[in-house]
Design a protein around this nucleic acid. Structure first.
Lengths: 360, 360
DNA sequence: TTGAAAGCGCTAACAT
DNA sequence: ATGTTAGCGCTTTCAA
């Protein structure tokens, strides 16, 4: 029973060359004769040699690993992002460590420090707290390149991939304006972070660009899984109801649709809906819901390009931070139609007997 | 400018002790005086010492990293699983590498080999191909403990956490039987893997146990994102329509609900629905949908326990494979009601107003 | 182009 | 309880 692990030395010995040569073959170094290469490769196969990642990392100071920190993979947005990132980096031999930030500052700091200690070759992250000085400090102290995922952290010199939320909102609002909607509600998860800030900015900018007064129809939710049922319902039953809604997140969208249905309105004839972010639900819903979305593969490609450009010996190490702006596209489906000419008549406002309690 | 990395030797020197002692402090070894511990810790802080993970791994042969391979984190089931696993392992200092199998055998093999090469301390995986001899071979050749996540791989000696799909289906069917349903449709994603096999087994067993003949109402979908709209619609418009549905997966569920709504049936008065798996959508839907679910934290705890028990020096290395069976619970919400007495009458085919009952 | 040898930073075995 | 020392398996000078 020979349980001893096979080292490069064993390979070299069997191939009749030095460890140095064997190492060169392993690393596809340029200066190796065809002959040596073949002998070594044969020996590797014969011994079923498997390089020790730890030893290589220790010596070469590269772990071929990227640390990822998102608030929560359970959020389909991040799940998709991670999947695309893994796909993208895998082709270059990188694997991804995934940590949850959970919008908890302590936890985020801990994760980032762990990435540092474990010598990640790069870090991709979307901290929940953009204004946290501690986060900024830890980020700036990291010895590997960092890429911010749709975050702007004051004082950070990290590169960033940024979504063009402003332009996206302008597209969505613009389309609804074309259809005659002037009262567009906006339902968002009220994190203080970039996506929400920029969406509101874009929403307001769109109204401004259209020379319309911006209505007070923004619904901010405390958590991504809270319901807008009650709030939207009272808007819809109020004196100046919206005729369209732009909503972010499945949970918020679902509860919004329930509220709309509860008032007897039909989508899209009585009420138009646009989702921020695409999902199975949005696509399969009847009617299929128009959605604002980004191409996650493009995002991942940018992420990889930015990170790896900081890596090699050719790395522009001290170059100024770069930011890539990723566009949104509006996928039009069946949830938007011309705005109804008048308010929804009273007779259509009733349907269910007992109003459901939908808070939480 | 002192860019040299700080080694344990530097710490030891500053603290006036040997590297051995410093190492013992770092690793919380038992045999260290309070005095030495404090001196070392102070030195560590003073120098902002950060241990080198690579060096520790190389020497101690432990990476404190677990490799995870699921088909796709974009599937909420796996996203939740991963999140719970990360949570669970993090408390013991482990981080998780996440790779996508994508139900592609080559890719799965590649990922598993990478885990092996990178010296993961353990591996958790749910390969798409349970019957693949290559997968089984690679799994058995791994030098670290492997935990199968709801998979049974013939010939594998790996431990497993298994969901009790059979019992779960019995619960769901049993409840529907109590409500008078005898024609329960079942919509599944037709992977050949354990979850689907066992669910069908449980479904049939439930009918058998109730002394009912099992109807031919199983809808198998080619992918997790395909629609059952057409198939369910023709069932519902056929001579012997189902009065209830158990469905797996958001996409399938959404398309099924559309079909039900299209025939004018209301949930739950005309048609009852149970979801296999809980989700934001299921909970927020109006009416809220009853769901079969497992406690993902429990699952993660079992996973950790099984894996770590194979790890220490106390490891029961050659012990027989163990399997933990995780129960399902049926969360009753508002989507199930007594079966309609007769076929849905023509007159009720449009929006009927029935009082809503609010359990939970 | 190849070989020899010096570490990468740490832990563990052994000696004290 | 602490110090000393020999590697872990590899990459990378440096010489040849």
């Amino acid at each position: 029973m020979n349980d001893k692990t096979i080292r490069l030395e064993d390979v070299a010995k069997l191939a009749g060359v030095s460890v140095g040569s064997a190492s060169r073959v392993l690393n596809h170094a340029p200066n190796v004769t065809q002959e040596v290469r073949e002998k070594v490769e044969r020996a590797m196969r014969a011994l079923r040699y498997q390089p020790s990642h730890a030893a290589r990392s220790l010596r070469s100071r590269s772990t071929k690993t990227i640390g990822c920190m998102f608030s929560d993979v359970t959020n389909p947005l991040y799940a998709r992002a991670f999947r695309a990132l893994e796909e993208s980096f895998r082709s270059d031999g990188y694997m991804l460590l995934l940590a949850h930030g959970l919008n908890d500052e302590q936890r985020e700091l801990e994760s980032l420090r762990t990435f540092q200690e474990r010598g990640m070759d790069g870090v991709i992250c979307a901290p929940g707290h953009e204004r946290s000085p501690e986060i900024a400090a830890v980020l700036n102290a990291m010895s590997m390149p960092v890429l911010l995922y749709d975050r702007e952290i004051p004082g950070s010199r990290a590169d960033a991939v940024l979504f063009d939320h402003v332009e996206g909102m302008k597209q969505a609002c613009g389309r609804l304006f074309e259809l005659g909607h002037t009262r567009i509600a906006l339902a968002l998860w009220n994190a203080g972070s970039r996506p929400v800030r920029k969406r509101i900015e874009g929403y307001r900018a769109a109204y401004r660009a259209a020379n319309l007064e911006c209505p007070d129809l923004i619904l901010r939710q405390p958590t991504p899984t809270s319901s807008v049922y009650d709030e939207l319902l009272s808007m819809l039953e109020g004196p100046h109801p919206p005729t369209a809604l732009i909503a972010q997140g499945t949970h918020i969208l679902v509860s919004a649709l329930s509220a709309v249905a509860h008032t007897g309105r039909k989508v899209p004839s009585d009420f138009s809906v646009v989702s921020i972010g695409d999902s199975d639900f949005v696509q399969t819903h009847d009617p299929a819901i128009s959605a604002l979305r980004t191409d996650v593969a493009t995002v991942a490609a940018h992420a990889k390009a930015l990170l790896l450009s900081r890596l090699g010996k050719d790395a522009e190490d001290n170059a100024a931070p770069r930011r890539v702006l990723v566009p949104y596209a509006l996928f039009e489906r069946d949830s938007c139609a011309p705005a109804p000419q008048t308010a929804v008549p009273e007779t259509r406002m009733r349907r269910a007997s007992s109003p459901k309690q939908h808070s939480q």
